[in-house]
C-alpha cells in the first residue's frame, strides 16, 4: 500500500474542506477502501477519517425514518425502529458480509462500496472502471457474477450491496452535503449505470459527503422479504437477490415494492413489476407472471445465462415469502 496522509477532522466544514482537494478520500469503516488500497486498485494521497462527525443516529423525522450515514450496518440491522418499520432493510443488512464487517461498515460506506468484479480488483487485468480505456476483462471472460441489466459497451459489473437493494425498494432518499449546499436525491438515482463512464459508480460529486438516508413510512412491514441466492449459505455475494415489500389490504395487493441485486451496476428497481402486481391477489401464479415482466431487456453472457432463469425464480420465491404463501 502506498503511504498516505491521514487526518481526522472533527467538523463537517473541515471534512468538506479536506475532501475538496484532489487525491483525498473519505474513510469511515474502511472495509472496502482499505481492501482496495491493499490491492493497489486505489491509492489516495490523503485519507479523511469522518468518524467524529455526528452522523450515526437513527430516529423518526419529518421524512420518515432517518439513518445517519455513519451508522454501523450492524446497528441498523438491530435497531428497534428499523425492525418495526422496515424489517426489509434489517433482513438485507443481515444477509450482507459478516458480523465483523457489519460492525465496521457504515451506511454511507455501504452505498459507496465498489464492485467485486475480479477484473476490477486485479491491476494486471484490463478494467474500464479502474483504468478507463483499458478495456473490459469480464465481457469476454469469466462473467458468472456479472450484470444482465443496464450494461454498457464499457462495463458489465454489478453493485455488490444488499442494503442498497432494500433502500432502493423502500423509496429512500439520500441527503448529501456539498461545500456550499445540501441536496436530496431519490436513492434509486444515487447509483448510476456504467454507460460511457464506468469509473463513476454514482452521482456523488467530488467533494460531496453523504449525510444519511430517509425512508418514508409505508405499510410493507408485515409483508416484506429479502432473499439472497448465493454459492454458500452465508458470507458470499449474491448471484441474485430480491427485496420485496407488499402492502396487502383485504387480500389485495395495494402497493408493491421490488428491487433486485446482483444483476446490474446499481440496485435494480422493478417499477413495471410493481405496477403489474397492484390490485392483484397474492398468489403463486400472479407472482410468477410478475416475475417474467422483470426480465424484459435482460441480456446474458457466456457464464451468467443462468441468471435469466434464476432471477425470475428468485423474484417469485421472494414474493411468495412476502405474500405469506411460504
Amino acid at each position: 500500500m502506498k503511504q498516505f496522509q491521514y487526518i481526522h477532522p472533527t467538523s463537517q466544514t473541515a471534512v468538506l474542506d479536506a475532501i475538496s482537494k484532489p487525491g483525498s478520500k473519505i474513510i469511515a469503516g474502511g472495509t472496502n477502501l482499505v481492501d482496495l488500497m491493499k490491492k493497489g486498485v486505489t491509492a489516495p494521497d490523503k485519507l479523511v477519517d469522518i468518524n467524529s462527525l455526528p452522523l450515526s443516529t437513527v430516529n423518526t423525522g419529518p421524512d420518515g425514518l432517518h439513518i445517519g450515514a455513519l451508522t454501523l450496518n450492524s446497528v441498523v440491522s438491530e435497531n428497534s425502529l428499523v425492525l418495526d418499520k422496515h424489517p426489509l432493510l434489517a433482513m438485507a443488512l443481515k444477509a450482507g458480509a459478516s458480523p465483523q464487517l457489519r460492525n465496521m461498515a457504515t451506511v454511507g460506506g455501504n452505498m459507496m462500496q465498489r464492485t467485486r468484479c475480479a477484473y476490477f480488483y486485479d491491476t494486471a487485468m484490463p478494467c474500464n472502471k479502474r483504468t478507463p480505456g483499458s478495456g473490459c476483462g469480464a465481457m469476454g471472460g469469466y462473467n458468472r457474477m456479472h450484470a444482465i441489466f443496464g450494461t454498457s459497451t464499457q462495463c458489465i459489473a454489478v453493485h455488490p450491496s444488499d442494503m442498497c437493494v432494500a433502500l432502493a425498494a423502500l423509496d429512500a432518499t439520500v441527503t448529501i452535503a456539498g461545500k456550499k449546499s445540501k441536496r436530496r436525491i431519490p436513492f434509486t438515482d444515487f447509483h448510476r449505470l456504467p454507460g460511457e463512464h464506468p469509473e463513476m459508480d454514482n452521482h456523488l460529486a467530488p467533494g460531496e459527503l453523504i449525510l444519511g438516508v430517509d425512508i418514508p413510512d409505508n405499510n410493507f412491514a408485515k409483508n416484506s422479504y429479502y432473499l439472497k441466492v448465493r454459492d454458500r449459505q452465508s458470507y458470499a455475494f449474491a448471484l441474485v437477490s430480491v427485496a420485496a415489500g407488499l402492502d396487502i389490504q383485504n387480500g389485495i395487493i395495494k402497493k408493491a415494492r421490488l428491487a433486485m441485486g446482483g444483476v446490474a451496476h446499481k440496485p435494480w428497481r422493478l417499477f413495471e413489476v410493481e405496477k403489474s402486481l397492484e390490485g392483484k391477489t397474492p398468489s403463486e401464479d400472479n407472482f410468477k407472471a410478475a416475475a417474467q415482466i422483470a426480465m424484459q431487456g435482460a441480456k446474458a453472457r457466456e457464464f451468467n445465462a443462468f441468471k435469466l432463469k434464476l432471477a425470475p425464480a428468485t423474484i417469485a420465491e421472494t414474493l411468495k415469502h412476502a405474500g405469506g404463501l411460504v
Binding site: R116, A124, Y142, R232, S234, Y235, A236, F237
Partner: peptide
C-alpha cells in the same frame, strides 16, 4: 490467470453451510 484467488471468491464452507 486466476480470477478468484481469494477467500471471497474461492468458496469454502462456512459455519452456516
Amino acid at each position: 490467470r486466476y480470477v478468484n484467488n481469494n477467500f471471497g471468491d474461492y468458496h469454502v464452507p462456512v459455519n452456516a453451510d
